[in-house]
Design a protein around this nucleic acid. Structure first.
Length: 914
RNA sequence: GGGCGAUUAGCUCAGUUGGCUAGAGCGUCUGUUUUACACACAGAAGGUCGCAGGUUCAAGUCCUGCAUCGCCCACCA
């Protein structure tokens, strides 16, 4: 099964990493080897499902980020041998497919309405079923994956048992009701919307002041007027009262009297209500319960009749008298004109205010009275328990934790002010409302889920029933996702084992739509599990990532047309590069701007790994397998081996810590820094020297081990390159930990590998190399020409001597003199670098510019003096010495000592320069 | 009207229990066909961490206020 990876030489590795070739091959290999397929064993409980490969434009980078984070967490847990982590994450793919199918239809000159609901869903499902992707692994607990994905992708009302069950249970508990309410209506989409689906936009408008004639007790004009201000004069035709603040002196005389509605002529009662702000406008409000949510509530309080004057399509109806049939905005103009002509318009002032807009299409939403289904979110279904109350307490009690924690407050604020949730939609995509009406007695039948469709009416027994035409808000269905996918309402093994899951991962903008609803639904539907929130919540952590914005910082949106197609970027730079960039580019929960250069540099990182592996493989011989370095033999290893192993160990420990804290970006950065900076730039270069040198210790075991471990660490972040490279390395390992990287154990920290002494020693050698390179560069010495150099060192002398071959090779020094005292080195015409534990002296003979060297040294001395002075000040402060932790004080003392040594060296060098 | 976030090198951003001569990538400058990699290597320049106070031995990090930008929520007609 590892046939693809039994490659024993580097000859077939191209010089540059080709993501396309690797990703395709790895994908096929994963599939053929069965790793991504459902398994019967508990050990491998994940299956990856694939969103369609060619979702261009619709599946944007935010989705890629979500998928990337989820995949990282899942792979990490799987490698840790903790397969119980399970994350939802499919919804956006479903939406994307719907949009895509709509687009396909458009290309054929059709709309979804032309082909009908059944055909439309059929196409959606066909699309999903025939496609696969090599990129964004969607994970799903194995089992009935076909069922749930079909359910989700098609929003097919038929087989949706969980939706039926939840609806039924909520209805039985009195939490779902049908009512005539004022709801948000989109005249273009022709559907009701929940409060959440309405966006508020600031727009310029006008505030029209209109006067209403007062009537005396006989119903005759009394000569008085009450002036009201409105932004929506077209709704005047539906006015049924006037409200003022009960304590407003100006209107006290009018309260309880009647007024006459201009144009229409209706009599309006003047009522007192606390909701009125006397300071706004004229202090008097026209009450239009049929077209304004505030007015609706005022109307309820004062028993004011409700008039609906606007049709669902946005035109005026018969109640609008002369304006019947007009569009609502044409009506506005006409009515303003008429009011003015008839002397009712007092004044018109420009006014900027916020208006509700459909979040799907941007059309101005019309509040309408309509019969819809609602969830009573604040109603107690048991003493002390309501959907919102439970959902609030589960979070305040800590059963669900938000990351980053600041989102907790956003959630609780919302939950505390929640109003009933309108769940019926006049759309096709969604599960159909499982309610049947009786044609003869009009009874409402909500049958238990076991009944597919009731045959007769519960109330009168008549057999003529019809199902509600409306569908459910998709978020109602989506809110059931954590357990509907696990077989609920049955008490399945899956449900027992995987509910609650560990982490819910999504963008912060989805908190209300989905996260909050899942928590509400979960707590209710799992109420049989008892009181403990821990058993009923759908997940313990909510990890929220930021939004991916475009280069200008704009939020990506389809309507704005600035969505970046992740597939195009994947084709260009590879899935690994795209994922690595998205995950590491910003802090947790922070928005990021996407710039292609970032992805390019992540691709370069992949290429770096590719070439480092290529180099390592070139040094290996398949007949001689390489053993893993063991702790027992560590003492015999050269310092640089112990150095890199020590640093690797620290990396492993840090990555473990960071991943446990969900600091994914930081963990990614650490791996990048280690693999590129420590391993490639230094260890590999040092190893080259040893490979060339007869009799030197064999670097190959460490070379392979560190690379192999690094690839394992990085695998969740860059699954494709790492799998490929690890697979190529595997044939050379004496004891490979597994057949494939994705099922290999995640590296574990073992502090015994730490070696501070080796780190100090090798860091000292690196400092020397850098110092000499710096001198070479500053003095413009030809890169290829070897130069003579002296390293003066006392305490670090053994380390420098051990590192001598590397100094010679990496800094091109020939010959290298290691001496214990500066007097043993030449003084004239030299460039000097003073390091904490060594001094580098490079004789320059003719190349030497004494003046330039002097000013350079002077500058360095000045800087070092400032630094040393600061440290001295700090250390001579008694407060610091007594209050700061001992190790901090000790560290400062070490720094000061080093700074002083350096300063002395610099001064001496300056003196010797004359 | 409330709430939240951001403000750190030319650009995009890290910096999560306060201890930093403040880092990365890109860009810039100077060099390099050094047999893994020019998707590279070596070297360098570049920041009073938005402003003003405060707490502390110590503040980019904590507190208060302010400014600018952005986001979310909200029934002010």
């Amino acid at each position: 099964m590892t046939k693809e990876h039994d490659i024993a030489n580097a000859a077939d590795m191209p010089k540059a990493y080709d993501p396309g070739a690797v990703e395709g091959r790895i994908y096929v290999w994963w599939e053929e080897s069965g790793y991504f397929k459902p398994s019967d064993s508990d050990a491998d409980p994940f299956v990856i499902i694939m969103p369609p490969p060619n979702l261009t434009g619709e599946l944007h980078l935010g989705h890629a980020l979500t998928d990337g984070v989820e995949d990282i967490l899942i792979r990490w847990h799987r490698m840790l041998g903790q397969p119980t982590l399970w994350l939802p994450g499919i919804d956006h793919a479903a939406i994307a497919v719907h949009v895509l199918v709509e687009r396909q239809l458009a290309a054929e000159g059709l709309t979804k309405y032309d082909i009908g609901r059944e055909k439309f869903l059929e196409r959606v499902w066909g699309f999903v079923n025939n496609s696969r992707s090599r990129i964004f692994g969607q994970h799903k607990r194995l089992g009935s994956s076909a069922d749930w994905s079909r359910e989700l992708f098609t929003m097919d009302p038929g087989p949706s048992r969980a939706v039926r069950a939840a609806f039924y249970q909520l209805y039985q508990a009195g939490l779902i009701y049908r009512g005539e309410r004022l709801i948000n209506w989109c005249p273009r989409c022709n559907t009701a919307l929940s409060d959440l689906e309405v966006d508020h936009e600031e727009r310029d408008g006008f505030l029209w002041h209109v006067r209403y004639p007062m009537l005396d007790d006989a119903g005759q004009p009394s000569g008085g007027y009450i002036t009201i201000a409105t932004t929506r004069p077209e709704t005047i035709v539906a006015d049924t009262a006037i409200a003022v603040h009960p304590e407003d002196e100006r209107y006290r005389a009018f309260t309880g009297k009647k007024a006459r509605l201009p144009i229409i002529g209706r009599e309006l009662a003047v009522v007192g209500d606390d909701a009125i702000d006397p300071a706004f406008g004229t202090g008097a409000l026209k009450v239009t319960p049929g077209h304004d949510p505030v007015d609706f509530e005022i109307g309820q309080r004062h028993n004011v009749p409700v008039v609906s004057a606007i049709n669902p399509d946005g035109t005026m109806n018969g109640e609008a008298g002369p304006y019947a049939g007009m569009d609502r905005f044409d009506c506005r103009e006409a009515i303003v004109r008429d009011l003015d002509a008839q002397g009712f318009l007092v004044k018109t002032e420009p006014y900027r205010h916020s208006i509700g807009v459909c979040d799907r299409c941007g059309t101005i939403v019309e509040p309408l009275i309509s019969e819809q289904w609602f969830v009573a979110v604040n109603k107690e279904y048991e003493p002390g328990r309501s959907l919102s109350g439970e959902a609030l307490r589960a979070v305040t009690d800590g059963a669900v934790q938000f990351l980053p924690p600041r989102f907790t407050k956003i959630y609780t604020n919302w939950m505390e002010n929640l109003r009933d949730w309108c769940i019926s939609r006049q759309l096709w995509w969604g599960h159909r409302i499982p309610v049947w009406y009786c044609d003869s007695c009009a009874a409402v039948n909500v049958p238990p889920p076991a009944v597919e469709a009731p045959e007769s009416c519960d109330a009168c027994g008549a057999t003529s029933l019809r199902q509600d035409e409306d569908t459910l808000d998709t978020w109602f269905s989506a809110g059931l996702w954590p357990f509907s996918t696990l077989g609920w309402p049955d008490d399945t093994d899956d449900l027992r084992r995987f509910y609650p899951t560990d982490v819910m991962e999504t963008a912060y903008e989805i908190i209300f739509f989905w996260v909050a609803r899942m928590i509400m639904m979960g707590l209710f539907c799992m109420r049989e599990r008892g009181d403990a929130f821990e058993k009923r919540v759908p997940f313990r952590y909510v990890y929220l990532h930021g939004l991916v914005r475009d280069d200008d910082g704009q939020k990506m949106s389809k309507t704005r047309g600035n969505v970046v197609d992740p597939i195009g970027l994947v084709d260009k730079y590879g899935a690994d590069a795209v994922r690595f960039t998205l995950v590491t580019a910003a802090g947790t929960g922070q928005d990021q701007r996407l710039r292609e250069e970032k992805i390019e540099s992540a691709r370069n990182f992949a290429n770096k790994l590719w070439n480092a592996s290529r180099f390592v493989i070139m040094q290996l011989d398949p007949s001689q397998k390489v053993a893993t370095p063991s702790l027992a033999d560590r003492a015999s290893l050269p310092a640089e081996d112990r150095w890199v192993l020590s640093r690797l160990e620290k990396l492993v420990a840090e990555v473990d810590r960071l991943l446990n804290e969900f600091q994914l970006n930081e963990a990614g950065h650490r791996m990048y820094d280690f693999l590129w900076g420590d391993y490639c730039d230094w260890y590999v270069e040092v190893a080259k020297v040893r490979l060339r040198q007869d009799g030197a210790a064999d670097p190959r075991p460490v070379l392979v081990h560190v690379l192999e471990t690094g690839l394992r660490l990085l695998h969740p972040y860059m699954p494709f390159v790492t799998e490929e490279l690890w697979g190529r390395l595997r044939p050379f390992m004496a004891t490979p930990p597994s057949e494939a990287l994705m099922i290999a154990p995640y590296p574990k920290s073992d502090a015994a590998w730490r070696d501070e002494e080796a780190e100090r020693a090798v860091d000292g050698v690196i400092d020397v190399v850098r110092a000499i390179r710096n001198i070479r560069s500053e003095k413009k010495i030809e890169p290829s020409r070897p130069i003579e150099a002296y390293v003066v060192s006392n305490d670090a002398r053994p380390a420098i001597e051990a590192g001598a071959p590397y100094i010679e090779a990496l800094a091109r020094v020939q010959p290298l003199h290691i001496v214990s005292d500066a007097s043993e080195a030449p003084r004239d015409g030299v460039a000097t670098a003073v390091l904490p534990h060594a001094q580098v002296i490079v004789p320059l003979a003719g190349l030497m510019d004494a003046g330039a060297e002097r000013s350079r040294l002077e500058k360095e001395i000045a800087e070092a003096e400032v630094y040393a002075k600061r440290l001295q000040g700090k250390l001579s402060n008694e407060q610091f010495r007594s209050k700061a932790p001992r190790d901090v004080v000790a560290a400062e003392e070490d720094r000061l000592a080093a700074a002083q040594t350096r300063l002395e060296g610099l001064r001496r060098a300056l003196e010797e320069l004359g």
